[in-house]
Design a protein around this nucleic acid. Structure first.
Lengths: 328, 328
DNA sequence: GGCGATAGTGTAAACGATTACATAATTATT
DNA sequence: AATAATTATGTAATCGTTTACACTATCGCC
C-alpha cells in the first residue's frame, strides 16, 4: 500500500505538506503543490480513509437504516437519499434491520463506530432514542415513523389525513362495510388507523373490523381471507402498507370475489404492480423522492449546525383513484 | 469517548492486557480477566472499530454492490446475503450503482478503503476486473453476471438453459411468433438471448424480433408497444428481467390484446405482483436465497484461503408455468 | 536443584492520516 | 532599515487499537 510517506519521499517534502496539498486547507507554494500532485499521480496514491477517519473523527458517509429492504417504499427512499448524498460528495451505507431490534442496534452501533456523519433511520417500534448510547452523539433524521421525542428531526407523511382521505374516498364510492388492516410494527399503522376511524365516525359508520398485524404479505392474506369468508363480510378492505395490500388483493381473488363490485381494496404506496393488476389499485402515493431528499438535506443541515432546533417536516400523500374502488 | 486506556487504568493493567482479554487470544490469569471485564462493563466500553481496522487492516464487514436496488431480485439477494453474513458475525454494507460505472468505482474504492473483508458484486458491463486497482487486493465474488476471467469466484444462473426451457415452454404451448426483449446492461441478457435463439432454432423457428434495451419498465413498454402494433405482431414476448416483463405486460394490456390468447408474456424472477396480475405470469424463478447464501459462503472461503482455486457455481432456474402462456 | 518451557504481563512501535507548534523565508508596514 | 505580518514548510504528537519483543514468575522434569 502506498501511503502518504511514500508520496512525501517522492516529492521531496514532508507528510504534512502532502496532507495540506490534498486537503487544500493551507497556503502552498504553487511549485511545491505541483510536485506533490505529480507524485500522487505517479504513485497512484489514494488517502486511507480509515486513518483519516480515526484522526479527524468523522467521515463523508451517511447511514441509511431501513426496516425492510424488500418494501419498494424503502428502496425508493434509498435511491433518493443516495442521489442527494452523492451530490454532496457523500456515500450511503444501507442497512436492513428486518424489524429486528437486535439488528437495529447492531447496525446503529456499527455506523456509529464507522464515524458516519449521520444516519437516516426508520425505527422499529421498540426503539427508544433516549436510552441509547448514540443519543446526542450522532446526528439523526427519523423517517416514515414518528417517535416520541421533540429533539430530533423527522420527515413524515401526514398519515392521519392521508388515511382519512382514502377512507372517505371509499365511503363516497358507496362502500359502507369497511375493514382495516394495519401494520403493527410502527406508529405509521396506528396513525393510519386513526384517520380510518375518524373518517368512519364523521360519516356515522362503524368499522366491520380493524386488525393490527405483522406487515407481511402472508399475514395480510390470511387475515383478509378470514374477513372475506365470514357471514358479515366487509365490502372494502383498507390496508396500511403495500405488503398488506398485496395479501388482501390476493385474498379477494382467491375468494372468487369481484373487485371492486364485491369488495374494494385500497392501500398505500404506488408500486409497480399496483397499476398493472386488473383492476388496478387505488392507493395513496407517498412522495418518496421528496422524503428521501428532504431527510438528506435535514441531515446535512444538522451536521453543519448540531444545535439547530429540530424540525419535523410533514408531507402530503397523493390519492390515486383507480379501478379497485370504483364502486359496486 | 472511553478508550482502552481508560479501561486499563480502571483495571490497573496495561492496554495490552485489556486488548488480550477482549481478543481472547492469549493466556490471562482468570483474576485479571475478571477485573478487566468488570472495568469494561463499568465504563460501558466498546472498542473503536476504526482504530482496530487501521491496525489489523481488516474488518468484520462485507460489501454488497448491486446495480439496481429497486429490482426485487437484488433485494432478495440482499436479504439472503445479510442473513448468511449475520450468522458469521459479519455486517453487510449495501451499495447501489444504478448501472453507473462511476458509482461502481466510487463504491468499490470506498469499500476497499473501509477494509471490508470482501465484496459480493454484480458488475456493470464496463467493469474490467484486471484494469482495476482493487484486483487481487480484495476478495470478490461475482453474482448474476459473468465476467471474462477465470480467477474469480462466481455464482451464476444457467441462463442459457433457463431461457431455453422458457422458450420451449412457449413453443410447446403453441406460440410460433416469438419476440425477445433482453437487457443490455449485462451478460445476463446476452446469455438468455442465446438460450432463446437456440430453442427457436432447434424447433425450426425464426424469431420475429430480438431487442437489446435498457432494463427499465419504460423501455420495455415502448419496445413492446412498437412490436405489438406492427402488422406482423408476435404472439409471444419473452423478456429477460422483471423490469422488462412489467413493461411488456403493460403494453399488452394497453394494446387491448388478450393474454394469453392474443399474446403470451413470460419473463424472469418471481415477483410479488407476477402471481397477482390476471393472468398471472409464467416465469423462471431464480433461487435468490441460494445465490445469496452461496456467494456469501464462497466469499468467506476465499477470505480464509485466498489462494484457493476459483470456483464458479451455476444454479438452475425453476420454471413456474402460469396463465400468461397457457396457449391460444 | 538446575534448566527449559510456558504463563502472564508490560513497554513501545506500529497502522496512515491530520494538525498544533515551531521555524525559516518572504512580504508589508512604518 | 527595522519590525510586524504572512507565507511556506517541517517536526512530532495524536487518534485507539494490536502485537512484537522483553521480561519475570511459575511449573515440570531429570
Amino acid at each position: 500500500m502506498t501511503s502518504i510517506k511514500d508520496v512525501a519521499k517522492a516529492a521531496g517534502v514532508s507528510t504534512a505538506t502532502v496532507s495540506r496539498v490534498l486537503a487544500n486547507n493551507a497556503p502552498i507554494k504553487p511549485e511545491t503543490r505541483e510536485r506533490v500532485l505529480k507524485a500522487v499521480a505517479d504513485l497512484n496514491y489514494r488517502p486511507n480513509l480509515i486513518a483519516r477517519s480515526l484522526r479527524v473523527q468523522k467521515s463523508a458517509k451517511i447511514g441509511l437504516v431501513v426496516s425492510d429492504i424488500r418494501n419498494p417504499f424503502f428502496t425508493a427512499i434509498g435511491r433518493a437519499v443516495e442521489d442527494a448524498a452523492y451530490e454532496q460528495g457523500y456515500s450511503v451505507l444501507m442497512c436492513n434491520t428486518d424489524e429486528d431490534p437486535d439488528k437495529e442496534e447492531l447496525y446503529l452501533n456499527l455506523l456509529y463506530d464507522e464515524n458516519v456523519a449521520g444516519v437516516i433511520f426508520s425505527p422499529t417500534h421498540q426503539f427508544d432514542i433516549h436510552s441509547q448510547t448514540y443519543n446526542k452523539k450522532m446526528p439523526f433524521v427519523i423517517i416514515d415513523r414518528a417517535i416520541e421525542s421533540n429533539d430530533v428531526d423527522m420527515v413524515l407523511l401526514d398519515n392521519v389525513a392521508a388515511a382519512y382521505e382514502l377512507t372517505e374516498h371509499l365511503i363516497r364510492n358507496g362502500y359502507k362495510k369497511l375493514a382495516g388492516l394495519f401494520g403493527d410494527a410502527s406508529t405509521t399503522g396506528q396513525e393510519r388507523s386513526r384517520g380510518f376511524h375518524k373518517a368512519l365516525k364523521d360519516h356515522h359508520l362503524n368499522p366491520v373490523a380493524a386488525h393490527f398485524i405483522s406487515p407481511r404479505i402472508q399475514q395480510g392474506y390470511e387475515t383478509a381471507m378470514n374477513l372475506l369468508n365470514q357471514p358479515n363480510r366487509p365490502d372494502a378492505i383498507f390496508t396500511s402498507n403495500s405488503m398488506l395490500t398485496a395479501g388482501a388483493y390476493k385474498a379477494a381473488r382467491d375468494s372468487k370475489l369481484k373487485v371492486p363490485a364485491d369488495v374494494a381494496v385500497v392501500g398505500f404506496d404506488d408500486t409497480t404492480w399496483g397499476a398493472l393488476v386488473d383492476p388496478p389499485i387505488t392507493v395513496i402515493e407517498q412522495p418518496t423522492e421528496e422524503i428521501g431528499r428532504t431527510a438528506t438535506e435535514l441531515l446535512f443541515q444538522r451536521i453543519q449546525e448540531p444545535s439547530r432546533s429540530p424540525k419535523t417536516v410533514i408531507l402530503k400523500g397523493l390519492l390515486i383513484a383507480r379501478g379497485s374502488s370504483k364502486g359496486k
